[in-house]
């Protein structure tokens, strides 16, 4: 059995256990910081078990010069630092995937495209109270610190933050 098949099998067989321990899925919106003091509206989606979180913020921008789509995916380990289970934090890995398409005015009909991927550390803080038995409200403050190559030796990081709110469903 090759490695990919083993991983897939492990994931498939671990799903029932994950669902049994309280699996939730949800979505919402908010904004992400985009350098300096710029904010961009963003959508937000997540899946979470009691201890594992997978989420992503996505944003886009389009004007006469370029169009750009950016996704900040996060996979984290969930901890409960306060007495209430509604207060959650996560630590894990995150990143940025951006796709930029430049409209070159000098060369008509020509377009430049660039796909960039970076990875870093992800930290999040959430307030996630239950509205009803299965319905969950979630306010999330997530961040990704991206080490820019060897400059990380000077503790220099790229940084994004997102503040989002949404509704989720617990199965």
């Amino acid at each position: 059995m090759n490695t990919s098949l083993k991983i897939l099998t492990a994931v498939v067989f671990s799903l029932p256990a994950a669902i049994a321990s309280g699996f939730e899925i949800g979505g919402g919106g908010g904004f992400v910081t985009q350098g300096d003091d710029r904010l961009s509206p963003a959508t937000y989606a997540w899946m979470q078990t009691e201890r594992i979180l997978v989420s992503a913020s996505a944003m886009g921008e389009k004007n006469s010069s370029y169009s750009q789509q950016i996704i900040f995916p996060v996979a984290g380990y969930v901890v409960y630092p306060a007495k209430s289970k509604s207060v959650q934090a996560s630590v894990g890995l995150g990143g940025m995937i951006s796709y930029t398409r430049l409209a070159n005015s000098e060369e008509k009909n020509a377009a430049l495209q660039k796909l960039q991927r970076t990875a870093g550390l992800a930290f999040g803080l959430r307030w996630s109270p239950k509205i009803s038995r299965n319905l969950i409200f979630r306010a999330a403050w997530d961040s990704v610190f991206i080490p820019p190559g060897l400059s990380v030796m000077y503790l220099t990081f790229g940084h994004m933050q997102s503040v989002t709110a949404g509704l989720g469903w617990e199965f």
């Binding site: 992400v32 985009q34 350098g35 300096d36 003091d37 710029r38 950016i70 940025m96 951006s98 970076t118 990704v144 991206i146 820019p148 400059s151 000077y154 503790l155 220099t156 990081f157 790229g158 940084h159 994004m160």
Partner: peptide
């Protein structure tokens, strides 16, 4: 001690900051 971001980064999606 370390690096802090004071909103002095280039306005990229992830802004790089290096003020110690």
């Amino acid at each position: 001690g370390g690096a802090v971001g004071l909103s002095n980064g280039h306005p990229n999606a992830a802004d790089f900051r290096s003020v110690n």
